[in-house]
């Protein structure tokens, strides 16, 4: 028996396997993040999940988003969360009590409902036809879209960030003043 290894046969299989791998990593990371007892593991799971998500972006032919996902979410967000955990000095309970069964069931129900609703929504949405999508997620197109079509949202986000910086400064200032007195 000869196996047909022409590109038309091989590439769909390879891409399906890649997608399964990437989606698997995302889910695995999410499960670790949600179920781990120690916060360090939760953050690591979150980072793993972000890597998987970056893979999905890459799979959707948008390498710019994939790289930004790694640069910002792992390089900044995860690191800062980890830093906060270190500073807060969380007392980690090694032998934590078994989680309440009722709470677990309730959580599962809520999550299942959310997932169901999302799946229904995905099924009903009229997706854009492929040709209309921004071409291969090129940086120039994203930049143009951000500064023209989504200009308002873009500016609003910068205002939010400015407020966050000011808030951090205020908190830090008062803390220092109290120490001196």
């Amino acid at each position: 028996m000869t196996i047909d290894l022409s590109p038309e046969k091989v590439y769909p299989v390879v891409s399906a396997l890649l997608f399964a791998g990437v989606a698997g990593i995302t889910l695995l990371g999410a499960v670790v993040a949600a179920s781990a007892r120690r916060l360090v593991y939760s953050v690591s799971g979150l980072a793993l999940s972000f890597v998987g998500l970056a893979g999905i972006y890459l799979f959707l032919q948008s390498p710019f988003l994939a790289l930004m996902q790694i640069l910002i979410y792992i390089g900044a967000v995860c690191v800062v969360i980890m830093f906060a955990i270190m500073l807060a000095d969380v007392v980690e309970e090694k032998s934590a009590r078994p989680r309440a069964l009722l709470a677990g069931i309730a959580c599962f129900l809520v999550a299942a409902m959310l997932a169901f609703a999302l799946i229904v929504l995905i099924g009903r949405t009229a997706w854009m036809p492929k040709a209309v999508q921004v071409n291969t997620g090129a940086v120039q197109d994203i930049g143009r879209a951000l500064l023209t079509r989504f200009g308002f949202a873009f500016e609003l986000i910068s205002v939010v960030l400015l407020l966050a910086i000011l808030g951090a400064l205020v908190v830090a200032r008062t803390g220092r003043g109290n120490n001196r007195e």
């Binding site: 790289l67 390089g75 980890m82």
Partner: peptide, 20 residues
Amino acid sequence: NLGLLMIFAFGAISTFVLML
């Protein structure tokens, strides 16, 4: 095409790993 960005993205990972 985004080689420069890729290098910085992967560089960010090593900070996280060193901290872990």
